[in-house]
Design a protein around this nucleic acid. Structure first.
Length: 537
DNA sequence: CCGGGGGCCT
DNA sequence: AGGCCCC
């Protein structure tokens, strides 16, 4: 019989607010909310006690709570930085670095190895002749390090730390149950360290898989933790609406309910308000076949398992290198190319900064290279939530150290983002953009620096790594020529493709200024830029 | 009057 | 390229 995993889910309380309080402690005492554009995205617990809700409209909130303090949270950099810092802090405590990040404020920890090791220590105590009773009643020192026996904490083996998900204790504290008891103490220790050293409160859940741990953690907030023993998992889940189970979103819930409550003739035989959507009812009205038929094999099986407390997904240690980096902004309306051009310049500048900060180490070496750039929009007509995107290969000039950021940004906007935009809107003579998102994706991990390898072998030979990188950088420029050519044929521009060879040359001294709008740009961009004005006006 | 991200699967 | 999921 195999032993169960021990998974901890951690969730920073009111995260954006906690970060704001970190920078401005005065906020701790007052009711405040973090807004993004016209919406309250979160609020601290003082505000929640007064009735302020998350995802409430800003206008409604200030009407209802005139003295509510509002903090702008549209720039995520401080939240991203704090999130990373807390993630690294926790990861250093978990053996094998088995920590997965979900959003900015949640972590999954697989502490199975640490539990196994400490259970083995405990078994040795039992085997050494001391009576089980005296071993179990004395405090146990849980070791958080294999190397340093002083690192760890004392904990009882006869009680759990924090809350019990269903309020009742398991029949025994043996086997997998004992593992979760230890897990609850690990969770408590880690949360204490985060509070003592980093100053952030958190909520924790402990169970045998990610979903049960996450749901347990949500049961008691803020600054609390909850353990869910597997023998209570089904009772715990049965009381929930299926839409409250993580990974069952709006769409899946609606598909499931339709499959259950619509007759086979397609006639709606149960009105919406009479549809019971608790896990218990859905489990008894449906079966795995119904789930697989309506949701597909993979999703169907997965969601059916979730309703029964089964989650085979593993904690995937989050990479130091993100899989994508994106910057977006929303607008009332963008209808002219020059507006789009200006916004793309701003977004592109932020994106380049993000790429440089997130993908370069402290030595200035690249950790990874995005190979693709993607432009995403939402138009007024495309409907809320629906996005349209186009992508293309990312020119290597982004990784060049011999150009200024301004030069690279101008190059990207005129030669890449604007062509992608024209590809995106196609033949449309008019457009109405409400969202623009620029992203780099397909981030290829950079090979370890060869200087590290020579250091490893004790040699210090001068290497031409930088030269190799230059050769590598140059190559996609030729691919770029094709896109430039297409752009040149578009109705916004022509004749641009003639001299792509000197596009990445050191020719950034020839700044030009648009006589129409005053926009500063590189010479190669001016002709295309003037076409924007022709188009828009 | 309608966040700004991010991940995986199809 | 889009859909659906998460925060």
């Amino acid at each position: 019989m195999s032993k169960s995993l021990v998974i901890i889910a951690l969730d920073w309380d009111a995260f954006y607010c906690s970060v704001e309080e970190h920078f401005n402690p005065e906020l701790k005492k007052i009711a405040f909310a973090v807004k993004q554009k016209g919406i309250i995205c979160t609020c601290n617990y003082v505000a929640r006690a007064r009735g302020v809700k998350k995802l409430q409209m800003l206008v409604d909130a200030v009407k209802q709570f005139p003295d509510l303090v509002i903090v702008n949270g549209e720039d995520l950099s401080r939240y991203r930085d704090a999130s990373k810092e807390l993630w690294y802090f926790v990861r250093d405590m978990v053996w094998g670095g088995k920590v997965e990040r979900l959003g900015f404020d949640e972590l999954f920890l697989d502490v199975t190895e640490m539990i196994d090791y400490n259970i083995a220590l405990l078994d040795n105590l039992h085997a050494s002749g001391v009576s089980q009773r005296s071993v179990d009643s004395a405090p146990f020192f849980f070791r958080m390090s294999k190397e340093d026996e002083s690192v760890g904490f004392s904990c009882p083996l006869s009680s759990v730390a924090g809350n019990l998900a269903t309020g009742s204790l398991p029949e025994n504290f043996e086997g997998d149950n004992l593992r979760l008891v230890l897990g609850s103490h690990v969770c408590h220790y880690i949360r204490s360290q985060i509070l003592d050293i980093k100053g952030y409160t958190s909520s924790g859940g402990v169970s045998i898989n990610k979903t049960l741990a996450k749901m347990a953690g949500a049961a008691h907030k803020p600054n609390q933790q909850t353990v869910l023993f597997p023998e209570f998992a089904q009772d715990f889940l049965d009381a929930f609406d299926i839409g409250r189970i993580p990974w069952i979103g709006h769409r899946s819930k609606s598909i499931i309910l339709d499959a259950i409550y619509k007759g086979s003739d397609g006639v709606n035989d149960t009105p919406e308000e009479d549809r019971d959507s608790t896990v218990f009812t859905v489990r008894h009205l449906a079966n795995k076949h119904i789930f697989v038929n309506s949701l597909g094999q993979s999703s169907g099986e997965k969601l059916w398992d979730l309703l029964h407390g089964i989650d085979h997904s593993v904690v995937q240690p989050t990479s130091d290198i993100p899989t994508q980096i994106s910057i977006e902004d929303t607008f009332k309306s963008l209808t002219s190319l020059i507006e789009v051009h200006n916004v793309l310049s701003r977004l592109s500048h932020s994106l380049l900064e993000r790429v440089q900060v997130d993908l370069m180490d402290s030595n200035g070496d690249w950790l990874g290279h995005p190979r693709t750039m993607r432009l995403t929009t939402r138009t007024r007509s495309s409907g809320y939530g629906s996005r349209i995107s186009r992508s293309d290969s990312l020119p290597a000039i982004v990784f060049s150290s011999s150009h200024t950021s301004d030069y690279i940004v101008d190059y990207l906007v005129d030669r890449c983002w604007m062509p992608l935009f024209s590809k995106l809107i196609g033949d449309a003579k008019a457009f109405d953009i409400v969202l623009l998102n620029v992203a780099v994706v397909n981030i290829e991990k950079a090979p370890a620096k060869s200087s590290d390898i020579t250091a490893f072998f004790g040699k210090k030979k001068p290497n031409d790594n930088d030269h190799l990188q230059d050769v590598h950088i140059e190559e996609p420029v030729h691919k770029r020529a094709k896109v430039v050519g297409e752009y040149a044929k578009s109705e916004f521009s022509d004749g641009l493709a003639e001299d792509e060879e000197d596009v990445v040359s050191e020719d950034d001294s020839c700044d030009e200024v648009c006589v129409v709008c005053g926009q500063r740009m590189m010479s190669f961009a001016l002709e295309a830029h003037m076409r924007f004005h022709d188009f828009g006006e």
